[in-house]
Amino acid sequence: MAEAPPRRLGLGPPPGDAPRAELVALTAVQSEQGEAGGGGSPRRLGLLGSPLPPGAPLPGPGSGSGSACGQRSSAAHKRYRRLQNWVYNVLERPRGWAFVYHVFIFLLVFSCLVLSVLSTIQEHQELANECLLILEFVMIVVFGLEYIVRVWSAGCCCRYRGWQGRFRFARKPFCVIDFIVFVASVAVIAAGTQGNIFATSALRSMRFLQILRMVRMDRRGGTWKLLGSVVYAHSKELITAWYIGFLVLIFASFLVYLAEKDANSDFSSYADSLWWGTITLTTIGYGDKTPHTWLGRVLAAGFALLGISFFALPAGILGSGFALKVQEQHRQKHFEKRRMPAANLIQAAWRLYSTDMSRAYLTATWYYYDSILPSFRELALLFEHVQRARNGGLRPLEVRRAPVPDGAPSRYPPVATCHRPGSTSFCPGESSRMGIKDRIRMGSSQRRTGPSKQHLAPPTMPTSPSSEQVGEATSPTKVQKSWSFNDRTRFRASLRLKPRTSAEDAPSEEVA
């Protein structure tokens, strides 16, 4: 009796068929016929556990003709996506030579605008209408194809895939403007070719909807975003200037109206006075309405000098805001240009540092100066060695804690006790272990408590650290204090090793 083939788990290929790579489910599931010992083939499952149809090819690079078809379809799909992405970037994010197409579109729109203006002049109306009709045909074809291509290429973005995504893309403001202008152009052409009475009025009214094509030149909205950011950044200043200017306008108009309503027919109503105030304070000055009385002229002159300053403030605020924003954008561009080279330089330096163990090129690091100058660790070890030599091999803490019996001779020589300023008595072995921070803190506390006492003391002649007598400086308080830590004499004296002298005989010792 033939044995059933062993159940295979995992992703390994079956024996005897090495080139074939078959994806098997996580659990080997066989058909009921196979479990019962029949000759049925096992049921194939996909990666998600769903059964595959009987005629479906197995996924994998070596699955025969199905694999070749899959490779061809995958390559075609990649080319399709690449083309779609390229078209989308050309239309929505132009760079380099892609601006040539947008310059061509701008020339078409500008020519249409010029011809629309010439069509309103009686001398050039006939020729402009003929040229404009031909140009409209060209623009309908160009913009119609462009609109379709834009909607198709938007599928390269995830949020615009599918018919719902394309509809979302078509609802964008600039796409809506394109659609309105396209419909208006078709209506103008249809009305112009019919030759009816309505054609002339339709051409004159709907052609100027094509002015909206100038708005579509900035599809990404960079200028509007820049203007919005400047207004938002200086909103408080703008609101303040406009508010005060509006108050000056209504008060000036009302007072001039009261002064001129009886003697001047131009100011017969408050609305006429508001019109005069707006034209005057905005420095336009049509001259259609002028005050005639001396009181009205004085009020107009005073409020004009006051109001023009507030009406001119928004222009200066926006101008300075634009300058600052442009400078910030230039700085951001320079930062973006330098970020990648800086990151590459840091990575290269780290690779060199991690692979080169000698690091002989590091001549400006802490390790280099640590090898030249005595390190703080060596100074600490030197302090501890000196203290243990004086205390008979014991550390200062051990000397303080060691009990001394009554009447027993002390094995240590008597030492002079010292007192730290602002604290109780402490171990004499710690007097010379006072660090730089303690010395600086002690000097600052003395300056806070009594700076007036220092200038009363007789001035001391500054001497070099080499000429100081070591026996005289029994305490860190003898170090000359200065008002600034930048004094080199104080810094050098604080680094010197001060020996400890006994109370009975204080021989001067120098520590090399």
Rank of each mutant, 00 (worst) to 15 (best):
M1T: 12
A2D: 09
E3A: 11
E3K: 09
P5R: 02
P6L: 07
G10V: 03
P14A: 07
P14Q: 07
P14T: 03
P15S: 02
G16A: 03
D17H: 15
A18G: 05
A21G: 07
A25S: 06
A25P: 01
L26F: 07
L26V: 05
A28G: 06
V29G: 06
Q33K: 01
G34A: 07
G34D: 11
E35A: 03
G37V: 11
S41C: 02
L47H: 11
P54Q: 03
P54S: 01
G55R: 06
G55S: 01
P57S: 10
L58F: 06
L58H: 08
L58V: 05
P59H: 09
G60V: 11
P61L: 04
G62D: 07
G66S: 10
S67A: 04
S73F: 06
S74P: 03
S74W: 07
A75T: 10
K78E: 15
R79S: 14
R81C: 10
L83Q: 08
L83V: 05
W86L: 10
W86C: 03
E92V: 00
R93Q: 09
A98V: 10
F99Y: 12
V100I: 06
V103G: 08
I105L: 00
I105V: 02
I105T: 10
F106Y: 00
L108Q: 08
L108P: 00
C112R: 04
L113P: 02
L115P: 00
S116A: 01
S119T: 11
I121M: 12
H124L: 06
E126Q: 03
L127I: 03
L127H: 04
A128S: 03
E130Q: 04
C131F: 06
L132I: 13
L132V: 06
L133I: 00
V138A: 11
M139R: 07
V141A: 12
V141G: 11
V142F: 05
V142I: 03
F143S: 12
I148M: 14
V149G: 14
V149F: 00
V151I: 02
G155A: 05
C156G: 11
R159H: 15
R159P: 12
R161G: 10
R161Q: 04
G162E: 02
Q164P: 01
F167L: 05
R168S: 03
R168L: 13
A170T: 09
C175G: 05
D178Y: 00
I180S: 12
F182V: 12
F182S: 05
V183A: 09
V183M: 08
A187V: 12
I189S: 02
A190G: 01
G192C: 15
T193N: 04
T193S: 13
G195S: 04
N196D: 09
S201A: 00
S201P: 14
L203M: 11
S205C: 04
I211V: 00
R216C: 00
M217I: 14
D218A: 00
D218G: 00
R219S: 01
G221A: 06
G222S: 04
W224L: 00
K225E: 00
A233V: 04
L238M: 00
I239V: 06
T240A: 01
A241T: 00
F246V: 03
A252G: 13
S253T: 00
F254S: 00
L258V: 03
A263T: 04
N264D: 05
S265Y: 06
T282S: 07
K289T: 02
R297K: 05
L306V: 10
S309A: 05
L324V: 15
V326G: 02
E328K: 13
Q329R: 13
H330D: 11
H330L: 13
M340L: 04
M340V: 14
P341L: 15
